[in-house]
Design a protein around this nucleic acid. Structure first.
Lengths: 239, 239
DNA sequence: CGATAGCTTGAGTAGATTCAAACAGAGTGG
DNA sequence: CCACTCTGTTTGAATCTACTCAAGCTATCG
């Protein structure tokens, strides 16, 4: 069940079979959620963390006026609230974007890992630092990229991340989001996302229809977004 | 020398004297930098991490066109590139905003801490997760807050963070930044920052002159920004 | 077949940008 | 000591990107 999670970890570091066993032993139970459900509310006390097995989730923060900002998207294999292990309460909510299956990991078992598996601890620490790196790239998008460049950067990022868990067919992949969800990621309105998608389509850069992304001109998109995937830390590092 | 760093850690968790000794032993040497110097370039291989003892620093990412986005500000006591311990190369640059004094900590000593001090390891892991939490709050600002609300949120955040290391005089504090630096934090142009600061001043909310922030109407600012400081995790947690 | 969610397009507006110029203050050298 | 420069701040005018409000469209589902 935890295969994609291991793929994700092994894309960046070596995981010994002993460590693999420790991870498998840490997993408690599996849960299924419907689409559009908040599974963790901001400020809630946490006793376990959650590995996303299947489906898409989002971390989000809201403003009083109801404006929502998604701060990160999660794909299968991601530890969606591993940071909750040290934070104990989250500063944000986590919601499903599609139907999802997750595995839970009790915090006391994570604590045991920090006692007994220093290397694996660093791997998981790295994993939360990777989330922070993605946050920084999104800050760059939100602060300095045009609407078109933001969309390009988002679609390029999702392709790389989905490819790690073998969920991309070459340049194409499924992304079962509404345009309103994209707007919440990009700090735009749904209407403007719609217009900008049309632009990208008319320029032959990509299409996004029926919840599927088709990348038509990757070099063009990379140029438009000034996309540099090093922030995803996809090189395997020596132990 | 490391007093503010300990203050910062102890604002959030208990640090035993034994752990304090371990931290002091991990510190290698002190370095002084002038203002406006990039001390770590994106992608550079890292062998040590850096505690900011005095002065202000920023993490930043640039776009091809030269637009710069600051992703986080650092105040004295912060471990500015602790995440570099697990990432090994940073996805962003780090620059001084003022003259700074830092202490360096070799990565092999951090690795020793992960072997010998599980609780302290979690404290430092928490610390990088706190950085990520600040990133998320900034994503919210950049994506959904108006220019005035972004400024308000930034000034409120800096007051809280500086108060932890006793660098705030009640509601006022020194913030030796130019308006251009604020613009790079907030995803705005310097011109618009200037106009928006004027607005805040005319509404009696705050003044920012001569590198000093004077908070005149905190409730008004909190309302304007919808500021909720829980993302700074300032409550002391039980061990 | 109507209801609903999501997508699309149009028209008018607002917030932020760009370009430009003027101004203030600190530091420098003659 | 004063002209000069440099950096940073301030203001104005024109423009543009993205937003708002609104309506029409499409596909899906009970």
């Amino acid at each position: 069940v935890i295969g994609r999670h291991l793929q994700r970890l092994r894309a960046r570091d070596e995981i010994s079979t002993e460590e693999e066993h420790a991870i498998r032993a840490a997993v408690d139970r599996q849960i299924d959620y419907p689409a559009g459900k908040t599974i963790i509310r901001a400020g809630e006390e946490l006793t376990h963390s959650t590995i996303l097995l299947d489906g898409f989730m989002a971390r989000y923060k809201d403003l009083r006026g109801g404006e929502r900002q998604i701060s990160e998207l999660h794909v299968p294999g991601d530890f969606v609230d591993l940071h909750g292990f040290t934070l104990k309460r989250l500063d944000h909510g986590i919601a499903t974007l599609t139907a999802c299956r997750v595995a839970t990991v009790p915090h006391e078992r994570l604590e045991a890992i920090t006692r007994d598996h220093p290397h694996l601890t660093r791997v998981y620490w790295f994993s939360t630092n990777l989330d922070a790196s993605i946050h920084r790239e999104w800050e760059l998008s939100l602060g300095r990229r045009s609407a078109a460049a933001r969309l390009a950067a988002l679609f390029l990022e999702m392709r790389e991340r989905l490819a790690v868990v073998e969920m991309a067919d070459g340049p194409d992949y499924d992304l079962p989001f509404t345009q309103a969800t994209l707007a919440e990621c990009l700090g735009l309105t749904p209407v403007h996302v719609n217009r900008t998608l049309k632009e990208l389509r008319e320029q032959g850069l990509l299409t996004f229809t029926g919840h599927r992304v088709r990348i038509l001109d990757r070099p063009g998109l990379v140029r438009l977004a000034d996309f540099d995937p090093t922030y995803l830390y996809l090189e395997r590092r020596a132990r």
